[in-house]
């Protein structure tokens, strides 16, 4: 089957990324201020922000893209604000924007390389990495762990496999 892939459940995508299931998030505070930001979890040493899709994720969600597939001005503004907040509390730690869709990763990479490029050059700040981490890749990682007898989240909590 071809065509647009099915919508990825945000919660399940977070589980696939971080191993955390249920509605669990990672709240990181800035030790020098009262600022906080809620990340989706940790992946290795990276603070994760999950982007299962920039498009609508449910019926009431307008999504973050316009009819041409570009980030809307509102979404761009929100993402830039979020990015600054994330980098501020991360205090030099890695931040990973994980995208289930390659085209979403490209759009976010343009944002990170463009309006957010200054975050990379600020002293001591690693900045934001954008990665395309498709569902099938993440599923395969967990399944391989399961085959090796290592811990995994309940495999039923992972997103459904996508058609390649």
């Amino acid at each position: 089957m071809t065509g647009r892939p099915r919508t990825v459940s945000p919660m399940r995508y977070v589980t696939a990324l971080t191993g955390m299931y249920g509605d669990t998030r990672l709240e990181v505070s800035d030790p020098d201020s009262a600022a906080k930001y809620v990340f989706d979890g940790l992946r290795g040493d990276a603070l994760v922000v999950a982007f299962p899709s920039l498009g609508p994720t449910h019926a009431m969600d307008p999504g973050r893209l316009d009819e041409h597939g570009r980030l809307t001005p509102e979404a761009t503004s929100k993402l830039i604000g979020d990015a600054h907040a994330q980098v501020s509390v991360a205090n030099g730690r890695h931040i990973l924007w994980a995208c289930a869709r390659a085209e979403d990763a490209e759009r976010l990479q343009e944002l990170v390389s463009g309006p957010l490029a200054d975050l990379r050059t600020a002293g001591g700040i690693v900045g934001i990495e954008v990665a395309h981490l498709p569902v099938n890749l993440l599923r395969r990682q967990w399944l391989e762990r399961a085959e090796r007898g290592q811990w995994t989240p309940p495999l039923g909590q992972l997103p459904e496999p996508e058609d390649e």
Binding site: M20, G22, D23, T24, R25, L26, E27, V28, S29, D30, P31, V38, V89, N91
Partner: peptide
């Protein structure tokens, strides 16, 4: 790290 707290909602 001391800055991190896991928050679960059920």
């Amino acid at each position: 790290p001391g800055t991190d707290t896991y928050v679960a909602s059920g």
